[in-house]
Simulated scan of single mutants.
Amino acid sequence: MPAPLQNDTFLRACLRQPTDYTPLWLMRQAGRYLPEYNATRTRAGSFMGLATNPDFATEVTLQPLERFPLDAAILFSDILTVPDAMGLGLTFAAGEGPRFARPVRDEAAVAALAVPPPDKLRYVFDAVSAIRRALNGRVPLIGFAGSPWTLACYMVEGAGSDDYRQVKTMLYRRPDLLHRMLAINADAVAAYLNAQIDAGAQAVMVFDSWGGVLEHRAFAEFSLAYTRRVLDQLKRENEGQRVPAIVFTKGGGQWLESIAASGADVVGLDWTCDLGAARRRIDDAVALQGNIDPMVLFSSPEAVAAEARAVLDSFGDPRRPDGRFGGHVFNLGHGINQHTPPEHVAALVEAVHAHSRALRQAG
């Protein structure tokens, strides 16, 4: 049996249950801003050497928890593991980011796609199990995957992109091909997340990193519809507990109501959204995650603390006059920058925990 959870504040906030303070975790919290991560990556020899080795993945997942009193751990992996398992040939060149040897750009390439067998991703599920054991109930473990649309962007472009020309050309010229790819991606992501849940993930997150680059009608048809297809297939209970699902669309604030109605328990917001206004727009129908600008962490510790307090004040007291609760998980509006001073992260964590407790005591 897994060890009992000692700190369930994150899970309670995801499910809009009372909490003593606002829980906090950071997107990319295990990463290059930590010297201990860089030392482990050097030992592993490469990013994929790190991500595909459960022992190394466990080590780096736990590193930020040793430094900061964070309220959740997130699996160390990459969103592109799923298309890699489809046989597209993923590599990470130093300073260049991810690249696929075989981009998917024509009918034959789309026809060859299939949901990968679980064994192709066994290393991820082994890492989830190992991390869960190593946590020993300290905090919950979050699993994750890229959204079907975001995966398609990389699969068609073959790498990151500034203009998404290849994938948007397919969208407008051959929408049938893109829909076929997105359906396969959605079923693959759902199976992948369910296997992470079976291995011990206590919450899961869908990163729709590039949903915000779509035209507003195209977002509903090519991104949100397939994120919903993932959510519709997810296991929502495991070990007798609800498994919350988080959806984060960078640049997606204009579609907040639609994303909130997708079946997600939590909607992540980037820093362009007013958190209090977002809460009012959805009337606490789901919890919200976010949304401080990661660049704030390059200012002084005092400024970091002030900005954190402003985000918490914007959301307000999670207790409502009608007796219900609003859920807030504090996070960055996107991933932490690799040059971030770790001591500024410590200031952020301390400010969030202290000010959110004070807000509840004052209410």
Rank of each mutant, 00 (worst) to 15 (best):
G290Y: 05
A191L: 14
V167P: 05
V124F: 00
R43Q: 15
P18Q: 01
G143V: 06
R280P: 09
G240T: 09
P83K: 04
G290R: 07
L5Q: 02
Y21S: 05
S300F: 13
A191Q: 11
A354L: 08
M155F: 14
C273R: 00
G363Y: 05
F330W: 12
H216A: 15
P2W: 05
A306P: 09
V267H: 04
D162Y: 00
F325V: 02
R28E: 03
W255S: 10
I197K: 08
M48P: 01
G160V: 14
P244T: 13
P23G: 05
T9A: 08
R281P: 10
L234S: 09
G252I: 11
L121P: 05
R28G: 03
H328C: 07
V167Y: 02
R236I: 09
D293E: 12
D8M: 04
W149F: 12
L113S: 11
G212A: 12
Q361D: 13
V110D: 01
E257R: 08
H339F: 06
R138G: 09
G200Q: 10
A134R: 10
G263H: 07
Q202M: 09
D322V: 10
T227I: 09
V156W: 02
T340Y: 01
V247P: 03
S209C: 12
R12G: 05
S46H: 07
T58Y: 02
T58V: 14
A3I: 02
A112V: 10
G89T: 04
A13K: 00
R174I: 12
R236S: 08
A285D: 14
M205T: 07
Q254A: 11
A114E: 13
Q233A: 14
T42S: 15
I142W: 03
G323M: 08
E96H: 06
L121K: 07
V128D: 03
D71G: 04
V139D: 08
D119Q: 15
A186M: 07
K168H: 06
A101Y: 02
L359A: 03
S129L: 14
K235C: 14
T150K: 06
A186P: 03
I79T: 11
L34W: 02
N38A: 10
F330G: 05
N7G: 00
V104T: 11
I336Q: 08
W271A: 00
A188L: 11
D78S: 01
A145E: 10
L332I: 08
I259A: 06
D106V: 13
A94G: 05
V345W: 06
G95M: 13
L348D: 00
F56V: 07
A159H: 14
L288D: 01
T150D: 13
S314R: 06
T169L: 15
F76N: 01
G89E: 14
A220F: 07
V286E: 06
W210A: 09
N185F: 11
A72N: 01
T227M: 01
A111V: 11
A94Q: 10
V349E: 00
R132E: 15
A260S: 12
T52N: 03
V266P: 05
V247T: 10
L193G: 04
V204D: 04
R228L: 14
F330T: 02
T22Q: 03
G316C: 12
F68R: 06
R32G: 08
H355F: 15
L24V: 11
D162V: 06
R228I: 15
